[in-house]
Protein backbone atom coordinates (compact mmCIF):
# COMPACT_ATOMS: atom_id res chain seq x y z
CA UNK A 1 0.00 0.00 0.00
CA UNK A 2 2.82 2.37 0.86
CA UNK A 3 4.46 1.83 -2.49
CA UNK A 4 1.20 2.77 -4.22
CA UNK A 5 0.93 5.93 -2.18
CA UNK A 6 4.56 6.84 -2.71
CA UNK A 7 4.37 6.24 -6.44
CA UNK A 8 1.04 8.10 -6.71
CA UNK A 9 2.74 11.15 -5.22
CA UNK A 10 5.54 10.66 -7.68
CA UNK A 11 3.09 10.53 -10.61
CA UNK A 12 1.21 13.57 -9.28
CA UNK A 13 4.47 15.50 -9.21
CA UNK A 14 5.08 14.54 -12.83
CA UNK A 15 1.63 15.77 -13.78
CA UNK A 16 1.92 18.95 -11.71
CA UNK A 17 5.09 19.82 -13.58
CA UNK A 18 3.05 19.97 -16.76
CA UNK A 19 1.66 23.32 -17.88
CA UNK A 20 -1.76 21.89 -18.67
CA UNK A 21 -2.31 20.81 -15.04
CA UNK A 22 -1.46 24.26 -13.77
CA UNK A 23 -3.73 25.79 -16.39
CA UNK A 24 -6.65 23.58 -15.37
CA UNK A 25 -6.21 24.35 -11.66
CA UNK A 26 -5.95 28.04 -12.45
CA UNK A 27 -9.09 28.01 -14.60
CA UNK A 28 -10.97 26.07 -11.90
CA UNK A 29 -10.39 29.03 -9.63
CA UNK A 30 -10.69 31.92 -12.07
CA UNK A 31 -13.63 30.86 -14.27
CA UNK A 32 -16.22 30.86 -11.44
CA UNK A 33 -15.03 34.29 -10.25
CA UNK A 34 -15.22 35.76 -13.75
CA UNK A 35 -18.63 34.20 -14.38
CA UNK A 36 -20.03 35.62 -11.17
CA UNK A 37 -18.73 39.10 -11.92
CA UNK A 38 -20.12 38.90 -15.44
CA UNK A 39 -23.52 37.54 -14.42
CA UNK A 40 -24.03 40.10 -11.71
CA UNK A 41 -22.96 43.12 -13.70
CA UNK A 42 -24.29 42.29 -17.11
CA UNK A 43 -27.29 44.08 -18.60
CA UNK A 44 -29.11 40.75 -18.73
CA UNK A 45 -29.32 40.34 -15.02
CA UNK A 46 -31.28 43.54 -14.55
CA UNK A 47 -34.43 41.72 -15.37
CA UNK A 48 -33.57 38.07 -15.12
CA UNK A 49 -33.23 36.38 -11.77
CA UNK A 50 -31.73 33.02 -12.50
CA UNK A 51 -31.38 30.83 -9.45
CA UNK A 52 -27.83 31.20 -8.13
CA UNK A 53 -27.54 27.48 -7.64
CA UNK A 54 -28.35 26.94 -11.29
CA UNK A 55 -25.39 29.04 -12.37
CA UNK A 56 -23.15 27.19 -9.93
CA UNK A 57 -24.21 23.90 -11.45
CA UNK A 58 -23.66 25.19 -14.97
CA UNK A 59 -20.10 25.96 -13.94
CA UNK A 60 -19.78 22.43 -12.60
CA UNK A 61 -21.18 21.14 -15.91
CA UNK A 62 -18.57 23.01 -17.89
CA UNK A 63 -15.78 21.31 -15.97
CA UNK A 64 -17.33 17.89 -15.61
CA UNK A 65 -18.37 17.44 -19.23
CA UNK A 66 -15.62 19.35 -21.02
CA UNK A 67 -12.49 20.55 -19.28
CA UNK A 68 -11.88 17.66 -16.91
CA UNK A 69 -12.42 14.91 -19.53
CA UNK A 70 -10.05 16.77 -21.85
CA UNK A 71 -7.49 16.95 -19.07
CA UNK A 72 -7.95 13.25 -18.29
CA UNK A 73 -7.20 12.42 -21.92
CA UNK A 74 -4.01 14.47 -21.84
CA UNK A 75 -2.89 13.09 -18.47
CA UNK A 76 -3.50 9.43 -19.25
CA UNK A 77 -1.84 9.75 -22.65
CA UNK A 78 1.16 11.30 -20.96
CA UNK A 79 1.41 8.79 -18.12
CA UNK A 80 0.97 5.69 -20.27
CA UNK A 81 1.40 6.21 -24.02
CA UNK A 82 3.93 9.00 -23.65
CA UNK A 83 6.07 7.14 -21.15
CA UNK A 84 5.82 4.05 -23.32
CA UNK A 85 7.21 6.06 -26.23
CA UNK A 86 10.00 7.50 -24.14
CA UNK A 87 10.76 4.09 -22.66
CA UNK A 88 10.28 5.26 -19.06
CA UNK A 89 7.04 3.37 -18.47
CA UNK A 90 8.47 0.11 -17.18
CA UNK A 91 11.83 0.91 -15.73
CA UNK A 92 13.24 -1.29 -13.01
CA UNK A 93 11.46 -0.06 -9.94
CA UNK A 94 10.74 -1.77 -6.63
CA UNK A 95 7.07 -1.86 -7.48
CA UNK A 96 4.80 -4.48 -9.00
CA UNK A 97 2.96 -3.93 -12.27
CA UNK A 98 -0.41 -3.76 -10.50
CA UNK A 99 0.88 -1.20 -8.00
CA UNK A 100 2.35 0.89 -10.79
CA UNK A 101 -0.92 0.74 -12.74
CA UNK A 102 -3.06 1.63 -9.72
CA UNK A 103 -0.82 4.49 -8.64
CA UNK A 104 -0.86 6.07 -12.09
CA UNK A 105 -4.63 5.87 -12.26
CA UNK A 106 -5.07 7.19 -8.74
CA UNK A 107 -2.75 10.11 -9.51
CA UNK A 108 -5.21 11.19 -12.21
CA UNK A 109 -8.11 10.58 -9.81
CA UNK A 110 -6.57 12.65 -7.01
CA UNK A 111 -5.77 15.53 -9.34
CA UNK A 112 -9.30 15.64 -10.78
CA UNK A 113 -10.75 15.59 -7.26
CA UNK A 114 -8.45 18.49 -6.36
CA UNK A 115 -9.68 20.40 -9.39
CA UNK A 116 -13.31 19.78 -8.42
CA UNK A 117 -12.74 20.88 -4.82
CA UNK A 118 -10.84 23.97 -5.92
CA UNK A 119 -13.65 24.85 -8.29
CA UNK A 120 -16.23 24.31 -5.55
CA UNK A 121 -14.35 26.60 -3.15
CA UNK A 122 -14.04 29.25 -5.82
CA UNK A 123 -17.73 28.97 -6.72
CA UNK A 124 -18.84 29.23 -3.10
CA UNK A 125 -16.55 32.11 -2.21
CA UNK A 126 -17.32 34.14 -5.32
CA UNK A 127 -21.02 33.38 -4.90
CA UNK A 128 -20.91 34.62 -1.30
CA UNK A 129 -19.20 37.81 -2.41
CA UNK A 130 -21.11 38.67 -5.59
CA UNK A 131 -24.55 37.07 -5.34
CA UNK A 132 -27.30 38.77 -3.38
CA UNK A 133 -29.30 35.60 -3.17
CA UNK A 134 -26.53 33.48 -1.73
CA UNK A 135 -27.71 31.11 0.95
CA UNK A 136 -25.48 29.24 3.33
CA UNK A 137 -27.85 26.28 3.33
CA UNK A 138 -26.91 25.56 -0.29
CA UNK A 139 -23.24 25.06 0.54
CA UNK A 140 -23.53 21.43 1.60
CA UNK A 141 -25.78 20.54 -1.34
CA UNK A 142 -23.31 21.97 -3.82
CA UNK A 143 -20.34 20.30 -2.12
CA UNK A 144 -22.27 17.04 -2.43
CA UNK A 145 -22.88 17.66 -6.13
CA UNK A 146 -19.19 18.38 -6.78
CA UNK A 147 -18.02 15.29 -4.91
CA UNK A 148 -20.63 13.02 -6.47
CA UNK A 149 -19.46 14.21 -9.90
CA UNK A 150 -16.08 12.72 -9.18
CA UNK A 151 -17.31 9.12 -9.53
CA UNK A 152 -18.25 9.18 -13.22
CA UNK A 153 -14.99 11.07 -13.79
CA UNK A 154 -13.00 8.14 -12.40
CA UNK A 155 -14.85 5.87 -14.82
CA UNK A 156 -13.86 8.17 -17.70
CA UNK A 157 -10.26 8.10 -16.39
CA UNK A 158 -10.22 4.30 -16.44
CA UNK A 159 -11.66 4.42 -19.95
CA UNK A 160 -8.98 6.87 -21.11
CA UNK A 161 -6.21 4.81 -19.48
CA UNK A 162 -7.48 1.70 -21.24
CA UNK A 163 -7.35 3.49 -24.60
CA UNK A 164 -3.93 4.97 -23.89
CA UNK A 165 -2.59 1.43 -23.46
CA UNK A 166 -4.12 0.14 -26.67
CA UNK A 167 -2.70 2.91 -28.83
CA UNK A 168 1.06 3.26 -29.12
CA UNK A 169 1.42 6.80 -30.40
CA UNK A 170 0.58 9.74 -28.11
CA UNK A 171 -0.75 11.95 -30.87
CA UNK A 172 -2.98 9.20 -32.13
CA UNK A 173 -4.09 8.31 -28.60
CA UNK A 174 -5.16 11.82 -27.66
CA UNK A 175 -6.93 12.47 -30.94
CA UNK A 176 -8.72 9.10 -30.77
CA UNK A 177 -9.92 9.88 -27.26
CA UNK A 178 -11.25 13.29 -28.20
CA UNK A 179 -12.98 11.98 -31.30
CA UNK A 180 -14.45 9.05 -29.36
CA UNK A 181 -15.65 11.40 -26.64
CA UNK A 182 -17.35 13.64 -29.20
CA UNK A 183 -18.95 10.59 -30.78
CA UNK A 184 -20.16 9.48 -27.34
CA UNK A 185 -21.71 12.91 -26.84
CA UNK A 186 -23.59 12.90 -30.12
CA UNK A 187 -24.41 9.31 -30.96
CA UNK A 188 -27.42 9.19 -28.60
CA UNK A 189 -29.13 11.77 -30.79
CA UNK A 190 -29.05 9.27 -33.64
CA UNK A 191 -29.46 6.08 -31.64
CA UNK A 192 -31.27 6.89 -28.39
CA UNK A 193 -31.01 3.32 -27.17
CA UNK A 194 -27.24 3.67 -26.75
CA UNK A 195 -27.65 6.53 -24.29
CA UNK A 196 -27.31 4.64 -21.04
CA UNK A 197 -24.55 2.41 -22.36
CA UNK A 198 -22.05 5.25 -22.65
CA UNK A 199 -20.01 6.38 -19.65
CA UNK A 200 -20.26 10.00 -20.82
CA UNK A 201 -24.01 9.94 -20.09
CA UNK A 202 -23.35 9.72 -16.39
CA UNK A 203 -21.03 12.71 -16.14
CA UNK A 204 -23.87 15.01 -15.13
CA UNK A 205 -25.54 12.46 -12.88
CA UNK A 206 -25.27 14.89 -9.94
CA UNK A 207 -28.49 16.44 -11.27
CA UNK A 208 -30.32 13.31 -10.26
CA UNK A 209 -29.10 13.71 -6.71
CA UNK A 210 -30.59 17.19 -6.39
CA UNK A 211 -34.26 16.23 -6.35
CA UNK A 212 -35.91 13.29 -4.73
CA UNK A 213 -33.46 10.47 -5.22
CA UNK A 214 -35.03 7.14 -5.94
CA UNK A 215 -33.33 4.26 -4.22
CA UNK A 216 -33.72 1.97 -7.22
CA UNK A 217 -32.03 4.52 -9.45
CA UNK A 218 -29.06 4.83 -7.05
CA UNK A 219 -28.51 1.07 -7.11
CA UNK A 220 -28.72 0.91 -10.89
CA UNK A 221 -26.36 3.77 -11.63
CA UNK A 222 -23.88 2.84 -8.92
CA UNK A 223 -23.86 -0.69 -10.36
CA UNK A 224 -23.20 0.77 -13.78
CA UNK A 225 -20.37 2.99 -12.58
CA UNK A 226 -18.72 0.24 -10.54
CA UNK A 227 -19.00 -2.42 -13.22
CA UNK A 228 -17.88 -0.18 -16.06
CA UNK A 229 -14.94 1.01 -13.95
CA UNK A 230 -13.98 -2.62 -13.26
CA UNK A 231 -14.34 -3.44 -16.94
CA UNK A 232 -12.10 -0.61 -18.14
CA UNK A 233 -9.70 -1.15 -15.27
CA UNK A 234 -9.29 -4.88 -15.94
CA UNK A 235 -8.91 -4.45 -19.70
CA UNK A 236 -6.40 -1.68 -19.08
CA UNK A 237 -4.46 -3.72 -16.57
CA UNK A 238 -4.52 -6.74 -18.88
CA UNK A 239 -2.95 -4.63 -21.64
CA UNK A 240 -0.50 -3.08 -19.18
CA UNK A 241 0.55 -6.49 -17.89
CA UNK A 242 1.25 -7.76 -21.39
CA UNK A 243 3.56 -4.88 -22.20
CA UNK A 244 7.17 -5.91 -22.48
CA UNK A 245 9.71 -3.99 -20.51
Amino acid sequence: MNTILANSLNEIQKLLAKKVTKLLLFSAVIIPVLTKILVNNLFLTDWMALPTENINFTLLDLFVTMLIPLYIFIASTDLFTGEGERGTLLQVRPISRLELFVSKLSAIGILTLTVLLAEWLSVIISSAIFDNTFEFSSVTASLGAFIVSWFPIIVISAFAVMLSLVIRSSVLAISTMIVLYLIMMFIPYLLPSTLYLLPSTYLDWYMQWLGDVSFRWIIQTVTYLCSSFTLFFSIGYYMFNRKEA
Binding site: Y196, L197, W217, Q220, T221, T223, Y224, C226, S227, S228, F229, T230, L231, S234, I235, Y238
Partner: peptide, 15 residues
Protein backbone atom coordinates in the same frame (compact mmCIF):
# COMPACT_ATOMS: atom_id res chain seq x y z
CA UNK B 1 -13.72 -8.46 -17.47
CA UNK B 2 -16.51 -10.95 -18.12
CA UNK B 3 -18.38 -10.38 -14.86
CA UNK B 4 -18.11 -6.60 -14.91
CA UNK B 5 -19.14 -6.50 -18.57
CA UNK B 6 -22.24 -8.57 -17.84
CA UNK B 7 -23.09 -6.44 -14.78
CA UNK B 8 -22.65 -3.28 -16.82
CA UNK B 9 -25.00 -4.48 -19.55
CA UNK B 10 -27.50 -5.54 -16.90
CA UNK B 11 -27.48 -2.13 -15.25
CA UNK B 12 -27.78 -0.38 -18.63
CA UNK B 13 -30.82 -2.52 -19.39
CA UNK B 14 -32.46 -1.73 -16.07
CA UNK B 15 -31.69 2.01 -16.30
Amino acid sequence: IGISGALMLGSVYSI
